[in-house]
Amino acid sequence: MSSSERAAALPQWTRATSTWRDALLVTWAVARRDRFALAGLVIYGVLLVVALAAPVVAPYNPQDLNYRPDGEVAADEVPSLPHWLGTTNLGRDIFSQVLFGARAALVVGFVAAFGVVVLGTLVGLFAGYYSGWVDTLLMRLADVAFGIPFLPMAIVLVAFLGPSIWNTVLVMILLLWRDTGRVIRAQVLSLRTRSYVEAARVLGASHLRTMFVHIAPNVLPLSFLYGSLAVGWAILTEATISFLGFGDPNVISWGFMLQDAYNSQAMARHAFYWFVPPGLCIMLAVMAGFFIGRGYEELLFPRLRRR
């Protein structure tokens, strides 16, 4: 190949040198080989579409009170054509609330998971790479985080910082990075002695370059595994916090809906149309996270795979 031909082929080669792109390819590979992981991805896909399209698709504003033609508040309506899933005790449209609830779930789940992955991976990289006192300090912090009872602490912090959805996310990041950090550290410890990491040092790569260019892409799949599990945990935790009444009162989430239903004795009135849909949604979203996590796990640790 002449140098002019090489120049022409250059964009194609350099594109393929991007290493972070691999992560997406890995996700695709996971989905292709594991039906559960595929199901998880599909659930997230639907969730994303619903969340984005909620204002367009939802027949009503979820916060608006609805009235009957006679001017009465349309409270406690059973499912009907205008209100597919009925209305709440205050006359709000349940179907619209479920659709809008996807937004909260998605924001909480993904922002929290992203934060957990970033923080956990950074902690793990620094602790594992530098070892010594950096490692000791970061891992003792992780021990402290492990010692904190998760849910009570989350509730206390949210109550202290004020009930907003962003505080919920922050609290979850601060409490959930520990698992990711620990696991990434262990992985980095074993990668650090691999020849290709030593090769990077011999070639003159700085510590940061070695960490982020040479080690990080190799722990990223593991970070993703913990990220996908964190999505499930975050959605579940947000639902719990909201259900217990510490959530953001201005945001419609599935947990908030459950609390609403519980407080107005929907269960006693057998208003299944009210509490079953948000419950089901929480379950599906959490399950999807774990399904994807499982797919990653099988890809990362092939021995788990059934023969």
Binding site: W13, T17, S195, Y196, E198, V202, L203, N218
Partner: peptide, 22 residues
Amino acid sequence: RRQAQFIFQNPYEALNPRFTIL
């Protein structure tokens, strides 16, 4: 680092598995 280079024992481990050769 530019003047002293190292050839590793295990060639299967000496290249980053997530990097292309280029």
